[in-house]
Design a protein around this nucleic acid. Structure first.
Lengths: 157, 157
DNA sequence: GTCGCTGCAAAGTCTTTGCAGAGAG
DNA sequence: CTCTCTGCAAAGACTTTGCAGCGAC
């Protein structure tokens, strides 16, 4: 087996941990823990997809039809979570800006240009090489992202 | 010297070549060669920057104040050039969508989160590794992009 | 001359903001 | 009770589109 891995099922951060981190974050900034914020975090956690604000909003409306959460609240909460490094946003070409949980758990993406599916991977050689390049060019690296576009296994059949 | 290079001054494709490619492209699609299209291509070529549609439009207005080219024409021409693979568009986080000439001349980007400057580089090891990863995951690679975010040499001083 | 191109302004899309009432602490 | 949060609708930012006249071929 190669050193490439796509398995993120054994998540380092479980939901309870995530939720208490979120509560701590809110408390330390004198912000309030509301049902809307909880539902947004929970829905992000439950979905394995990379979500746009709109698709997240749709998901929430399906799962919690009584709550009537506004799209503006979704945008506001995603910004809050991103500023706090609890979620990461990425641009996927024509698919636009998408959000995913967990900035800590770094990985890169393969994006199928046919079906739009996204596969995650980590490659240590690339990670190391990126560090080295940044160093050689006098750059203090903070973050990086890599996307490979192509046709996925399923779509090739 | 490492195998990293940031030198793209000796461009493979010179302007005359570029222009005649563009003319051929237009001709083969029964499209017309207009002064607006020429000026947009030329301004893109003359600028070493990665340009947003708006910054390109501003540049053109400075250089050709009499022409009064509309922003809509800039958008339309950039789409045309991108569809024809004569320019490439990239998302640079908060800096938004930017365009650069020359899809053939593949390279990746270092983006300074302080001053916004962009440094280009190519690394063969990463290129090879990307191919390998795509293969191992049953993916037919079409394209890829990589961005490293951090603080550039100048801004660290 | 024909038919595509352009500038303009209007219309779309996506995202942010102001506000008054609701609700967490 | 206070002060933040929310939904709503309006406003913004960015991009696309319809149209009538212009201009390349």
């Amino acid at each position: 087996m190669s050193d490439i891995t796509t398995n993120f099922d054994d998540r380092i951060v479980e939901y309870e941990q995530l939720l208490s981190d979120f509560k701590a974050l809110l408390k330390s900034n004198s912000l309030k823990f509301t049902i809307q914020r909880e539902v947004i975090l929970e829905t992000l956690y439950d979905s394995d997809e990379h979500l746009t604000p709109e698709s997240l909003h749709n998901l929430i409306q399906e799962k919690f039809p009584d709550l009537n959460i506004g799209i503006a609240t979704v945008y506001r909460t995603l910004s809050l979570l991103e500023d706090s490094n609890m979620v990461t946003s990425l641009y996927f070409g024509a698919q636009g800006k998408k959000y995913e949980l967990g900035a800590k758990n770094h990985h890169d993406h393969l994006i199928c240009t046919n079906c739009g599916c996204i596969t995650e991977f980590v490659d240590e050689q690339i990670e190391e090489r990126q560090d080295k390049i940044a160093n050689e060019l006098g750059f203090k690296m903070q973050d990086h992202s890599m996307q490979i576009y192509g046709i996925c296994k399923n779509c090739r059949n």
